[in-house]
Write a protein that binds this DNA or RNA. Structure first.
Lengths: 346, 346
DNA sequence: CTGAAAGCGCTAACAT
DNA sequence: ATGTTAGCGCTTTCAG
C-alpha cells in the first residue's frame, strides 16, 4: 500500500491558461520585466495566487545558466583533520560570518550551500562541484593562511571571494578589517587610561590577523614610549584566554593593563583576574577585540575593538554577486575601519 | 573591453560524438546502468576524460525531479533574535552535527544548503524554498523545544527529519541519544567512586535534553539512596559553567562530586575548582556529557558520557535519503545508547 | 505590448 | 545491448 503520488505542482502553462495569456507573458510578470499591461499583470498575479504556482528552479536554471545559489566554503590548510568542522564552529566568529552572508542573501532568495575543504581530496571535490554548477560562486572562509584554495579558484576562473586577506597575494576579491588600526585604538586607550605595565594576549601566531593585531599593538605602544610589551599566545578560545592570563599574571604580577586579541579570550582573562583578586578596571584595565556577544555577556562588560564581521560578510556577498554578474570584473579589496567600544572593563 | 565569454562546457552530445555512440549510452555509463558493453564503456570513459565533461545538474534535475541537495535547517522558536546564528554556532555541538551530515552526504555527491528559521517570516521562507525545490528534504536542528517547524514540514508532506525528539509528538523521523541512560551512567560512576555529596550543573531547563539529563541523574541518585541532588542551571556555555560551579561551591562547600550536563560547562567547572584549591579528582570528582573536543582539552582530561553526535547525524542523513527515496515511508525514531568514557577527572 | 516557437542538457520510455 | 525520441519547465529571440 503506497501513498498517492503528490499532485504535480502547477507550471507556467497552468498559470497562463488560468490568466488567459501566454507563458511568455507570465514569465515576464514573474521576472519583473516592464512592458506588460498593468491589467494583464494583475490578472497574472491572481492566477499565480489561485494556482499556488512556484517557479521551478531547475528549469529556470537550465536556461539562465545560473543556479541562484552560492557556496559557503570553510577551508583549511591540508592535513586529514577529523575534528575540522568542530573547530571551525567553536568560535562565534564563523556564526557571525554565516549570519552576515545569510542576511544579505536571503532577501534575494538565495541560500548558501555549505562545503568543507579540509583536505586535498575535499578541495578537489569543491572545485569539481563549482565547475559542475552546484553554485554560481563561492565565499571562502579560511582557517589557515597557507590555504591553497583561493589560488586554485582564481586560476580556474570561478567567481570567488575571501573573508580576510590571503597570506600571499592572489588575484581575488576580499574584505578585511584594519587589524593594526584596531590594535592601535586599544593601545591608545590603555595609555590614555594611565596604565604603565601593559601586556597582551595574542591569537595563534600562524594566523595573519593575529600577527597584525600584535604588531599593531606593539608599534603603537612603542610610539607611546613602551618599547616592549610582554605577550602570551592564545588560541582564540575561552580556555586559552584563561591559561594565557594565568601565565602573564605569574610572570608580571604588577601588570595593570591587558589587550586581548579576541573577546572570548578576554572573557577568560576577566575570570582569572577576578579569581586573583584583581579589580577590573581599577587594578587592571582590559580591552578585547571583536565586539562579539561575549563582550556584553562579561562582568564587567568588556571595552573592545569593534570588528564589523556581519557588515563585512554582507559586503563580501555583495562583491561575489557582482563578480558573478560581470565575469570580467577586477578583484577588489575592501578594508573596514575598526572602532573602539568603551564599556566597563577599562 | 570585456573578457571573452567562457567556452561552453561539453555536453552529453559532445561526449557521445567523441565516443561514437548515442547520448543514451553515455547517460547509461554515467549513471552506472549495466547492460552496456564493457568495450563501449571504456570508450565512453575515455571520451568523458578527454572532453572534460561534467554533467549539468539543472538539466538532470529537471527530468529526475530531484535536486540532489538537502537543506540543513537551523531552527528556533520564534522571536526576532538578531544574534541567532551566532548563538547556534557557539556550541561545538552544531559543528559536530554538520560534520556528521557532511561526512555521510559528501561521498554521495550531495551538499547541504544552509537555512536559518529563526522567525516566523524566515520559517515561511524555508517552507517556500523547500516547496519550490531548492532541496529534496530537510534535516532540522532545533534550538528550542516549541519549534513549530517540524509540524509544519510534516503537514506539508515534505521529507524532513529531526535531530532530537520533538517536545510534542510529531509524525516525523528523528534520532536522539538516551539522555536518561547517560545521566545514570554518570550517577552510577560517581557513587561507585565513593562520592557522598554529589551535585549537578544542568543545561537550560527549557530544553528537553537538559530536563532528561537532570531527571535521569536524580532518579539514578535516588536509587542509590540520595533522594535530593542540588542543581545549578547553566546555559551550555563555558562561562555559564563557571558561574554555576561558583554558586554550587558557595552553597555546598562540602561537595565531592559533580555531574555537568555538557563538557564545555564542565571545562568551566574544572577551572573554578582549581582556583578554589580543590583537587580533581581527589577532592572533587567531575563527570561531563558529550565527549566533545573540550573533554580531552581539559586538565585533567574529562571523564564524560559519550554522545555519538556524528554517528547520529550521519544516521539522520541516511534516514532522510530513505524518506526522499520512498515518499510513503513511515516516521522512524532511532535512539542511540550513550557510554561512559573514563579519563582523569573522576 | 503580447504570442509563437525554439531550445537549455539531460533521462527514460520505447524501438530495434 | 544500443539508438531514437519525447519531453521536464522555463526564458528568450523573433514576429506580429
Amino acid at each position: 500500500m503506497r501513498q498517492d503520488p503528490p499532485p504535480p505542482s502547477p507550471t507556467l502553462e497552468d498559470v497562463a491558461r488560468a490568466a488567459g495569456v501566454s507563458r511568455a507573458t507570465v514569465s515576464r510578470v514573474i521576472n519583473g520585466i516592464r512592458n506588460v499591461d498593468s491589467a494583464i499583470q494583475e490578472a497574472v498575479r491572481q492566477a499565480i495566487a489561485t494556482t499556488g504556482y512556484v517557479p521551478n528552479r531547475a528549469a529556470r536554471s537550465l536556461v539562465t545558466r545560473r543556479t541562484g545559489s552560492i557556496a559557503l566554503v570553510v577551508s583549511g590548510a591540508g592535513g586529514d583533520d577529523d575534528s575540522f568542522p568542530v573547530q571551525v564552529f567553536a568560535d562565534p566568529f564563523f556564526g557571525r560570518v554565516a549570519g552576515g552572508i545569510v542576511g544579505f542573501l536571503r532577501p534575494r532568495g538565495i541560500h548558501p550551500v555549505l562545503m568543507f575543504a579540509e583536505t586535498g581530496a575535499a578541495r578537489a571535490q569543491v572545485l569539481a562541484s563549482l565547475r559542475q554548477g552546484d553554485a554560481d560562486g563561492a565565499v571562502l572562509v579560511s582557517t589557515h593562511a597557507e590555504d591553497p584554495l583561493p589560488r586554485l579558484l582564481a586560476e580556474a576562473g570561478l567567481p570567488a571571494v575571501l573573508f580576510a586577506r590571503p597570506a600571499e597575494p592572489v588575484p581575488i576579491s576580499y574584505v578585511d578589517v584594519d587589524h593594526r588600526a584596531g590594535a592601535k585604538l586599544a593601545a591608545d586607550h590603555l595609555v590614555a587610561r594611565g596604565r604603565k605595565q601593559i601586556v597582551t594576549i595574542s591569537g595563534p601566531l600562524d594566523v595573519p590577523a593575529s600577527q597584525a593585531r600584535l604588531a599593531g599593538f606593539r608599534d603603537a605602544m612603542a610610539a607611546h614610549g613602551h618599547p616592549y610589551v610582554p605577550c602570551a599566545e592564545g588560541g582564540f578560545t575561552y580556555h586559552s584566554g584563561v591559561q594565557a592570563m594565568e601565565r602573564l599574571l605569574a610572570e608580571h604580577p604588577g601588570l595593570d593593563g591587558v589587550f586581548v586579541a579576541n573577546d572570548l579570550m578576554a572573557q577568560g582573562a576577566l575570570l582569572v583576574l577576578r579569581h586573583h583578586g584583581r579589580a577590573v578596571p581599577d587594578d587592571v584595565a582590559v580591552v578585547g577585540f571583536d565586539d562579539s556577544s561575549a563582550a556584553t555577556a562579561c562582568r564587567p562588560a568588556l571595552t573592545t575593538v569593534r570588528h564589523p564581521v556581519e557588515d563585512m560578510a554582507a559586503e563580501l556577498a555583495r562583491l561575489l554577486l557582482e563578480h558573478i554578474g560581470q565575469p570580467g570584473h577586477r578583484p577588489t579589496s575592501i578594508i573596514f575601519e575598526p572602532s573602539l567600544v568603551v564599556r566597563d572593563s577599562s
